[in-house]
Design a protein around this nucleic acid. Structure first.
Lengths: 239, 239
DNA sequence: CTAATAGTGTCTATTAGACATTATTGT
DNA sequence: ACAATAATGTCTAATAGACACTATTAG
């Protein structure tokens, strides 16, 4: 006797199975004042109350059609913007990472221009941008420390063969600023000439014609050409 | 008034929240008879009953300490081996991918030597190795088609800058076989000389001293040196 | 002028691709 | 010997690193 899907669903009861706690958390990175910064939020509730942790929270089945939706919802709650770059990093789960039960977290990482969200972040009492150096010294909630490292490592790899890190900058930007972001991610200096050659080869940027005004020779200001997110170099920067 | 974690947990009831269905599924790949093969399982139950799909299933909180545990458990059930290479690919989730409710799947991908599990797979009625070409033509359960493509794409990228694909081979293996795996993943031929140069540079393989015996000149048989999983080339194969 | 920063010229080193050549087996 | 396959020799092209040099601003 074959049962139809309809009959099967009539008798199916999801609450029979022990539930899993599902959270979606995001490692939000930006560049400001010669440093890579990560957004942390002070937890207002148990567990790990009063510890700094990643912005995020439980999946909301009524609001979230997908995992990306959940990530964007939580990001917008803190920054009021939708990030120009969002990527899934990894999913962690275990029976003992949360005292409430078997818990998993889908970790995303986003790059945002700080100018677009600084005011909003400053207005949210419990959210703050930390220098990566500082963040690394803190005791964070759950396994969020490890999540930040995984996200950082991913962006480091991308810095070696792409210009994805540009999304951490406020446009228009100079190639020196962009190079600096790459240097901070990779952890070593990059030859100016090499970097400019790659920028030209990628054909990802347009010269706005404007320049910076500061001490020294003015720098050209560039914007990312629209619809170019994924240029990959065959040859990496040597890390 | 501050509530302690203990008090908080006393009143916390996980069943208050709508549960999410969590499955862990694995894209198992191997190399056999000049083709990349993927392991598919015929579903014995609703939904998508009788469709081919990925090996996997619901997270079992009593058996699985982590998501990797769940992946390994399901892989071992079909192949009777623990794969030499296992990697998390992505997690998908939405309210409408499964008629039973909001559902998510943590997708892993593993590479296995076919010799170690062929007999076991053959003994399991509902499991079969499919050529990638065949698998691409099938109508698969859930969004497993997309999961296979994501895994394949990941392995393709790795084939460009590493020798990770070696784990799809039964050792000892020849460099010609390994090159063929890379070619199938990348979708184009690779210069024999270039490939051998890279193999030498990686220092990942030891010559067993043995050779193949077939028509033509015998090929040297190699093994992977233990504890070398992550050599990365600065310069990619040009795809 | 000098200091500071942006941007270029040009050489070297590395390495992937191309492809001809040599080596080693079975029949 | 010939066919088949493995492995090497060697040239070229592409491109990242190094670093000296030039350019353009502020003061």
């Amino acid at each position: 006797m074959t049962e139809t899907l309809k009959e099967y669903l009539k008798h199916y009861d999801a609450t029979e199975y022990p539930s899993v706690l599902v959270t979606v958390d995001t490692v939000l990175l930006t560049y400001h004042e010669d440093a890579i910064k990560v957004l942390l939020v002070k937890r207002a509730s148990h567990p790990d109350i009063d510890h700094w942790g990643l912005p995020g929270g439980f999946l909301d089945q009524s609001k979230d059609k997908s995992l990306e939706d959940a990530a964007n919802r939580n990001i917008e709650a803190k920054t009021n913007i939708r990030p120009p770059y969002l990527e899934q990093i990894q999913t962690v789960g275990s029976g003992n990472r949360d005292p409430r039960g078997w818990s998993m977290s889908v970790i995303f990482s986003a790059l945002v221009p700080i100018a677009a969200c600084k005011a909003n972040v400053d207005s949210v009492e419990e959210a703050r941008w930390f220098d990566m150096d500082e963040a690394r010294k803190l005791k964070l909630a759950f396994d969020h420390k490890q999540a930040i490292e995984a996200a950082f490592e991913r962006h480091k790899q991308k810095a070696l063969y792409s210009f994805i890190p540009v999304y951490a900058l406020t446009q228009p930007m100079t190639l020196t600023e962009l190079r600096r972001v790459h240097e901070l991610l990779i952890g070593k200096t990059i030859q100016r000439k090499s970097f400019i050659r790659r920028a030209e080869a990628s054909d990802m940027f347009t010269d706005t014609g404007k320049t910076t005004q500061d001490k020294g020779r003015p720098a050209a200001l560039y914007k990312v050409k629209s619809a170019v997110k994924d240029y990959r170099f065959v040859r990496n920067i040597e890390a």
